[in-house]
Design a protein around this nucleic acid. Sequence first.
DNA 1: CTACTACTGAACCATATGGTTCAGTATGCC
DNA 2: GGCATACTGAACCATATGGTTCAGTAGTAG
Lengths: 120, 120
Amino acid sequence: MVQYAAPDLDASFAALADRTRRGVLEQLGYAELSITDLAVQFQMTLTGMRKHIGVLEAAGLVVTRKVGRVRTCRIGTERLDEVTAWIDTYRQRWDARFDELDKVVAALEQKEQQDARTRR
Amino acid sequence: MVQYAAPDLDASFAALADRTRRGVLEQLGYAELSITDLAVQFQMTLTGMRKHIGVLEAAGLVVTRKVGRVRTCRIGTERLDEVTAWIDTYRQRWDARFDELDKVVAALEQKEQQDARTRR
DNA sequence: CTACTACTGAACCATATGGTTCAGTATGCC
DNA sequence: GGCATACTGAACCATATGGTTCAGTAGTAG
């Protein structure tokens, strides 16, 4: 609940800010894939794709394991929960504040009417 | 539903990937604030804070208006909905896939038992 | 008119990011 | 063993990012 120490959020959001990486997450939703599979599909060098996977892995959004010479990637959803949790927390607060503002506006309007009456 | 054309998502996620900017969004949840207010609170130059606000504004997460010489910032929540929508879409798909995998595993186990029986 | 305040814009700087190439290393297969 | 495959690491490059300073511009107030 306390979001002071949230170093992961930086990494998670940054990882999601790239179209290719979101595409990778999408693809990994259908099947586990090797670095080569992904590099081919996104028309990128192995090294380039490996970097993206590294970013996703560091952000906890992807988990990989190496069997023989091939590294297989699959998604890890826990961090996405953290991301949505952050957003939901603040959206709730914001919505609450908007409601308050509505009340303040209503109160001001009432007071305005009262003042108008006393001025009479 | 089609996320091919999602150029905003890049900007939204990137905007949220910075601790200071998330802090700004948090503060704007309590009150509308000027650039100066925010610069003071985050111990940063006016110019620096203005850049952050620019990023948030470009991402549609903050709306500003200038009255006289002071620019006031408030939050705009619509884009956050897009962000959570993207996440929820894929998480649903992923969860569905995990369920499928469970079934496949279960089916394999059944087949294994059958094979064991026929082998008898 | 003067002085202060609030912001803006340009220029600069260090570091990070997204990508490449090229040269390994390690595994799998005939 | 010998060759192809799959990845890894270092080096490099262009651009973006997060910040600064400094020099404006434009409201506000006395």
